[in-house]
Design a protein around this nucleic acid. Structure first.
Lengths: 194, 194
DNA sequence: GGTTCATATGAACAAGCGTTCAGGTATAGA
DNA sequence: TCTATACCTGAACGCTTGTTCATATGAACC
């Protein structure tokens, strides 16, 4: 009934979609509920998005950009390997806390017919970043020698698990607690507890 | 057409269900496809299971029992804390490799209206087991002092992440590599690489 | 007022879903 | 051969779904 700007309406739809998709998953989510949540009619959704799949894709793409932008923004700088790893972990965990809904949706639809390859590529990209940090740390004598590929894989999987736990159980794990734990395993000399 | 024993048919249905449910998720899975996969007719499924939900529940309950039985079977014995932790990790990872489909389904339907509480209880139970191992390790002087609750949480989350990675990407992470990494962070003295 | 344009509506449609049930078929014992 | 029993079938039903489209509304111009 009320007239709104197109931009405002599109935003409403995307917000409602995130709510419904993340609670129910792609298949169980339905357009009627999204419309109701956004307080618009069914038909309006189809003005802004071709169909359910395109709406979903749009949602995913929007949110993922936020994260990748933030990670790219991490200054490689002249930090120590420990500090670089700490920052990497902090950025990921902060994002997870702030975007629980998206994480839930992402995990749930891991095997969604479209976009699996993109997800895998993103994941491998993150592993490479960690690996580079570890290699630097070993070269500078900061970290003990190890198979940097294996260790990077384990660290990324660890991060994944923590993020999963944050999203599912809504618990608050301090980034420092995780960094400390991981650094204990990496550093050459005894790692001092704070 | 062919006559089969009821037990054989029920088994067929459960196997086909695992296949379809884990590939598509609960909502997108449909009875017709399960029936086709099991090479039986639609109606037959309803002879053995009241409805789709009961079929799903049955599947979950069956598979979960296998894992809990195996964990309970772990002898608490007189092992060192390191060995106990290694065994704990090994049992979980071996299960994950052997039952990828179930893990995928489990993750996907984490927030399924029924059974969330049971899942959370199982998870907390596992954390308690780890915590006990860590406490023993600290008491015996094997592990350095730490907040055993926090560390147990992190280790469980790590395990979760590794299991997720195994299930999603079908990569093979050696239990020893993970144990080594975690023990590095726990042990008092320098942990020797093999 | 009249016209145009972007925006919004929800009944209607076809397709797919879970579920039922009246009936069919093979086996075993009489 | 007949009967009883266990097992199986798939068309049919009612409901929900994604999607369409003829129609309506309000604002901005002349």
């Amino acid at each position: 009934m009320n007239k709104r700007s197109g931009i405002e309406t599109k935003k409403r739809i995307l917000e409602a979609s995130m709510d419904v998709f993340s609670r129910k998953g792609y298949a169980a989510a339905n357009i009627r509920e999204i419309a109701k949540t956004a307080q618009i009619s069914i038909g309006t959704i189809y003005i802004y998005f071709k169909n359910k799949e395109e709406l979903y894709q749009n949602l995913i793409e929007n949110k993922k950009k936020e994260l990748t932008d933030r990670i790219v923004a991490m200054s490689p700088g002249k930090k120590s390997a420990s500090e670089a790893l700490k920052e990497f972990i902090r950025v990921h965990l902060e994002y997870a806390v702030r975007h629980r809904e998206f994480i839930l949706l992402h995990i749930r639809e891991h095997g969604f017919s479209f976009g699996i390859e993109k997800k895998r590529a993103f994941f491998n990209q993150q592993i490479e970043i960690i690996e580079r940090i570890i290699k630097n740390g070993i070269k500078s004598g900061e970290f003990r020698k190890s198979n940097s590929v294996d260790v990077a894989r384990i660290i990324m999987a660890t991060l994944r698990g923590i993020i999963l736990t944050i999203a599912l159980d809504n618990v608050n794990i301090k980034p420092e607690a995780l960094s400390d734990f991981i650094l204990c395993a990496l550093l050459k000399k005894e790692y001092g507890k704070k």
